[in-house]
Each structure stands twice: as structure tokens, then as C-alpha cells.
């Protein structure tokens, strides 16, 4: 290439790139999803109550919560995974795949769901999926809790409306907790170091798998406390499984093969070290909240 050709090629390349960026500017620097798109999507979702809706992108979540019907908006966040969802929807922008870093991990290695339909609402797409690998849910810890007995080493914990308990060493409450930067609905356990909470659910209907998750809430606490959490499952008075988790595991999945039928189920949860270590030493607050959810599933026949 002679001395004049190289600069000419480079100059043309630069100017072409500038033109490409101008065209890209025209495409990206505008709002794409209109109010009408949201209204149409919301009306469609309202016609399908009871089916889970997920959003494919974090940035869509707030607007979706604002626009979708109340039931769908409430369920947008907090799902444990897609294992119990035999049908679900994913709301995604434009031509983007509905399977993103936000939605794909929710499959947890299950076979890919079957895409059934795509409904277009302007710049929004609502993807319908059937999920044949999902199990049929036989029980859910969070639904069973109002009838549960909760105790700590110092005695029975006092129930408040069946969704929260006060113990001498702390408390337990059903709520959403930030785990690995996602809201998860779970039983949040906040007890002193080494204190074990026993959650006796009584007789519940188990399937052939017991699945659940454990995570550590609050990024500040995760940053400043590396304690481990221990979870034991007792079935019919016998220890069935014991797991140890750390906050590096994020929203850690657990699974156990179970004998289908009615069984007495008890969870025992313990955190090795509560509180956080700050610049000026240990403080009781903020503290790690252990976020636990467990469900019984019948998977074999699915």
C-alpha cells in the first residue's frame, strides 16, 4: 500500500464508522416501548391469570411492575425457579431472546421449555412457554408456614400472623430478600451466631423430590461476613439431609429424593456467625439473613 493509500483507506474507514454511529444513534437514542405497547401487553396478561410472567431484562422489571395487573406484578419478582411452572410467559423487548442472564439461570439445568407462541405488542414480545420438565408441586414451605411450630434453643418462638416469629435470639419472617442481587421470596432467618431454629411443619404431602434454595441476604452483610449456614431436613423424625452453604454460592439449589406421601417435615437452620465485621469491629447489625425456600415436587410422572 503506498503512502497515500493507507491514509485514504483509514480516512474512509473513520468516516464510514462515523456514519454507522450516526445511524446507530438514530436507532438507539429514543424510547422504543410506548405506553400503548404496555397497555396492550397488560391487557393480554390480564386475560391469563395465574400464569407466571417473567421479564427478560432487569431494566424492564420496574415498568412491568407498574403496568401489569396487580397479581402478575406481585409475582414478577421472588420466584424461586421455574421447576414448578408448567406454563409461563417471558416479557422481552423487541427481537431480543427471552433467555437472558436473568431468565436462563431459573431453569437450573432443566430441559429447555417448549416455545408455544410469541405475542407482539409494539416493541414488546410476550413469549409463551410450556415446561414439560416441571414437576407438580405437592407442597410449598411458604404456604405451609402458617401452621408451623418454630422453636429455638431457648424455647418456642412467638408467632405473629403465621408469617413471622420472634425468638429470644432473633426472628424469622416470610418476605422478599435480596439474594445474589435478585429478590427472592423465602423464609428469612435472622438469629444469633450458632443458634439453630427448628421449623416443624407437621404432616405435609411430599412428592418424589424435595427441592429448594438457600441464599444469604443483603450484599453489605455478604461483604462483611463470611459465615456459613447449615440446613437440615428431618423427615418423620429422622435426619434426611444436611447441607452447608456459604454466601459465594449465591441462590444455592438443594434437592433430595423423597418417598411420595404424607410425612412429618422439619427444617433446622443455623448460621455460624451473625452480624458483620466493620472498620470498627463486629456489629450485630446489619446481619446476614438466611433465605430458605423448600417445595415438594412430583417430577417422575411429568
Amino acid at each position: 500500500m503506498n503512502a497515500k493509500r493507507l491514509p485514504l483507506v483509514l480516512l474512509l474507514a473513520v468516516l464510514t464508522l462515523g456514519l454507522v454511529e450516526l445511524v446507530a444513534s438514530a436507532l438507539v437514542y429514543r424510547e422504543r416501548v410506548s405506553d400503548e405497547d404496555w397497555e396492550a401487553a397488560a391487557a393480554f396478561v390480564a386475560e391469563h391469570p395465574g400464569e407466571a410472567v417473567l421479564v427478560s431484562e432487569d431494566w424492564l422489571a420496574a415498568r412491568a411492575a407498574m403496568e401489569l395487573p396487580a397479581e402478575a406484578a406481585r409475582a414478577l419478582e421472588g420466584l424461586p425457579d421455574l421447576r414448578g411452572q408448567q406454563r409461563f410467559w417471558i416479557l422481552a423487548p423487541g427481537r431480543r431472546s427471552p433467555w437472558t442472564a436473568r431468565t436462563h439461570p431459573e431453569l437450573e439445568g432443566m430441559a429447555a421449555p417448549e416455545a408455544e407462541a410469541v405475542h407482539r405488542f409494539g416493541a414488546l414480545r410476550l413469549h409463551a412457554f410450556a415446561n414439560p420438565s416441571a414437576g407438580a408441586e405437592t407442597f410449598d414451605l411458604l404456604d405451609a408456614l402458617p401452621d408451623a411450630a418454630v422453636a429455638s434453643p431457648s424455647g418456642k418462638c412467638r408467632s405473629q400472623s403465621g408469617l413471622s416469629w420472634r425468638c429470644k435470639e432473633g426472628g424469622l419472617r416470610v418476605r422478599e430478600v435480596e439474594v445474589d442481587y435478585r429478590p427472592r421470596r423465602c423464609l428469612a432467618v435472622e438469629l444469633d451466631s450458632g443458634v439453630q431454629a427448628k421449623v416443624s411443619l407437621g404432616a405435609v404431602e411430599l412428592g418424589d423430590r424435595l427441592r429448594g434454595h438457600l441464599g444469604f441476604g443483603d450484599f453489605n452483610a455478604r461483604l462483611r461476613n463470611d459465615g456459613a449456614a447449615e440446613l437440615e431436613l428431618w423427615i418423620d423424625g429422622a435426619l434426611a439431609a444436611r447441607w452447608l452453604f456459604t454466601d459465594d454460592q449465591g441462590w444455592a439449589a438443594l434437592a433430595l429424593a423423597t418417598e411420595p406421601g404424607t410425612h412429618a417435615l422439619e427444617l433446622r437452620v443455623r448460621l455460624s456467625a451473625a452480624g458483620t465485621w466493620q472498620r470498627d469491629g463486629h456489629r450485630n447489625s446489619p446481619t446476614n439473613a438466611i433465605c430458605v425456600e423448600v417445595r415438594g415436587l412430583m417430577e417422575a410422572t411429568q
Binding site: 437514542y29 424510547e31 416501548v33 415498568r63 411492575a65 407498574m66 422478599e176
Partner: peptide, 21 residues
């Protein structure tokens, strides 16, 4: 999470830049 618990899941208003809150 804290605000969803206090006010419910639906925001009243969102300021966006190209759809992004």
C-alpha cells in the same frame, strides 16, 4: 425489595432514559 414490601410492587412513576429507569 424494601420499597416493594412497604409500597407494593407497582411504582407510581418512572423517569427513563431510552426506556431504562
Amino acid at each position: 425489595v424494601e420499597l416493594r414490601e412497604r409500597f407494593g410492587p407497582a411504582p407510581a412513576m418512572i423517569l427513563t432514559l431510552d426506556d431504562v429507569p
